[in-house]
């Protein structure tokens, strides 16, 4: 029993990491219509940026900020240089998926000679243990949960109370209509790539900090968990992604405790398949958002 309570604690941390990543991913999709399969690789790249700073003696908390900035800049450029031109050319959704997969493959392999195959980890004290009953977490993990909560509140505030957020939601609902209503969608799209890129970079550093070590190969695993959370919540729905993250975080950690940690992604995949069969539009999405056209 206490094993599961402990797993619940890890679940809290897991869901925090997934939430940051999945909200960014799902907003990219919802607003720009781009399923960015390079997302996991951008996360890993940001984690490495923080790693090299950390190696040079800079605190990982500063590295986290730099990682987020790197993610923002990189995602912005990726869209401007590759995705947006293809979209303007009228490339189909399917074509865009292939393009982003090619980008993901290229990034992983450009990174490989630079960072090597081996796992690395941050040089940062865990900050001591904190006990809450059977739940034992490190101070860092508590901080991760705190960061996630703050980020989610900021996203909520952004979407709910700012002009930019409203423009984002309008663009997401109907880009043509939004443009006709005088919303400069190009600027909105740029802002989205910057913001979601920052979430992506932040998530990468946080995920790396939460695991004992990380390596290039983690990009694909990240992506699967994020996809599961985003699809579960309803693709393109930020609040859905938050709920999806909570569920996926809990389910994967509990299954890891009950079964084997090697199968975390497999369990996430199982959830993904169930959602696709039973409720392809996800928990929150409006019907039709994900179902076949027509």
């Amino acid at each position: 029993m206490s094993l599961f309570v402990a797993a619940f604690g890890f679940g809290l941390v897991s869901m925090s990491v997934i939430a940051i990543a999945a909200v960014g991913f799902t907003m990219q999709f919802g607003i720009t219509n781009m399923i960015n399969l390079a997302y996991g690789e951008v996360m890993i790249s940001s984690a490495y940026v923080a790693y090299y700073l950390n190696k040079a003696g800079i605190s990982i908390w500063i590295g986290m900020v730099v990682g987020a900035l790197f993610g923002a800049a990189f995602s912005f450029l990726l869209n401007r240089i590759v995705y947006a031109p293809f979209q303007r050319k009228g490339t189909s959704y399917l074509g865009m998926v292939i393009v982003s997969l090619a980008i993901s493959l290229m990034m992983a392999n450009l990174l490989l000679p630079i960072v090597g195959y081996y796992s690395v980890s941050y040089q940062e004290g865990t900050g001591g243990l904190i006990r809450l009953g059977a739940i034992i977490l490190t101070t860092n993990q508590i901080l991760i949960i705190g960061i996630a909560v703050v980020v989610m509140l900021l996203i909520h505030g952004l979407l709910k109370y700012t002009r930019l957020g409203k423009a984002m939601r309008a663009t997401s609902a109907n880009p043509t209509l939004a443009r006709n209503c005088g919303i400069p969608t190009q600027r909105v799209v740029d802002a989205v790539w910057l913001i979601t890129g920052a979430l992506c970079g932040l998530a990468g550093v946080v995920a790396a900090l939460n695991s004992d070590s990380f390596a290039i190969a983690n990009g694909a695993a990240f992506l699967i968990t994020i996809l599961a959370a985003a699809v579960l919540g309803g693709a393109g729905q930020p609040y859905g992604a938050m709920i999806g993250a909570v569920l996926i975080g809990l389910i994967t950690e509990l299954s890891a405790a009950a079964w084997s940690p090697e199968y975390k992604e497999v369990v996430a995949f199982g959830v993904l398949v169930l959602v696709m069969v039973l409720r392809p539009q996800g928990l929150l999405a409006k019907r039709g958002a994900m179902a076949a056209a027509g």
């Binding site: 959704y93 199968y263 398949v273 179902a291 076949a292």
Partner: peptide, 28 residues
């Protein structure tokens, strides 16, 4: 699972994820 209800780009992603997962399962 994949071809009945999903939009084509989701089909692609579901299949990609399947590929990664199948490999993980057989490896472990």
């Amino acid at each position: 699972v994949v071809l009945r209800k999903l939009r084509s780009d989701y089909q692609a992603i579901a299949l990609l994820v399947l590929s990664v997962i199948a490999n993980t399962v057989i490896t472990n």
